[in-house]
Simulated assay, not measured.
Amino acid sequence: MPDRQRADARRNYARILAVAEEEVAAHGAGASLEQIARIAGVGSATVRRHFPTRRALLEAVSHQRIEALATRARELTDKGDSRDALLEWLSDVVAYCVAARGLAAALAYDGAEPDPVHENTCSAMMAEAGNPLLQRAVQDGAVAEGVTVADLIALIVGVVLATEHHPDPAARADRLFRLAVAGLSPRG
């Protein structure tokens, strides 16, 4: 019977994750865990057993998108101007976060102390992926020393969360991100 239970648990996990992806896409990071359980045909306790926190669920839902962003960062690491490569990747991150409701919340720093059991794997993957791009831009003098990928992701999360209810969130988020990159002073 243990094999059957493991197979059931795997099926439940896959079903919960599929439903969660749809619910997060439709309702964002605040998607109801109870609704996810109901649609998946499992109890709330089963959802919580697989995903002990909302963040764990959001990270699982966002994992494929994060992998795609990591791949994109690797593609851009040795291409052209280091600042342009970094900004192209960050623009991709903004676009992904706007399109994939819940992704910004999965990347957000929640103020909790680092805990290896509940580490924010999405943020860790993004930092690992973006760090070579950032370091190259810093070495080229295109980005100030001391800037971290975590700083840049926090900026993006703020922009995306601030624009998610705008009539055109993608355009507004892109504009605000570019404004942050350019700064407030006119070029002279």
Rank of each mutant, 00 (worst) to 15 (best):
M1S: 13
M1F: 04
D3F: 10
D3Y: 09
R4I: 13
R10I: 10
N12Y: 10
N12M: 11
N12W: 09
A14M: 10
I16N: 04
L17I: 09
A20L: 08
A20I: 01
A20M: 05
A20Q: 06
E22Q: 15
E23K: 14
G30I: 06
A31K: 01
Q35N: 11
I36P: 00
A37E: 02
G41Q: 00
G43H: 12
R48I: 02
R49V: 01
R49W: 08
P52D: 13
P52L: 12
P52K: 11
R55L: 15
A56V: 09
A56C: 07
L57R: 05
L58C: 06
Q64S: 12
R72M: 07
R74E: 15
R74K: 14
R74V: 09
L76G: 06
D78S: 14
D81F: 06
L86R: 04
L86I: 05
W89A: 04
W89E: 08
L90E: 13
D92L: 05
A95L: 13
C97F: 13
V98C: 05
A99F: 01
A100W: 00
R101S: 02
R101W: 02
A105M: 09
A106K: 02
A106F: 02
A108H: 09
D110I: 03
P116R: 14
T121V: 12
C122H: 04
C122Q: 04
S123V: 08
A124E: 12
A127I: 12
E128Y: 00
N131R: 12
P132A: 02
L133Q: 07
L134V: 06
R136W: 02
A137K: 03
V143Q: 04
A144G: 10
G146T: 04
T148C: 04
T148G: 08
T148S: 15
V149W: 06
A154S: 15
L155G: 09
T163L: 06
E164G: 01
H165E: 13
P167A: 11
R172M: 14
A173D: 04
R187F: 00
G188H: 10
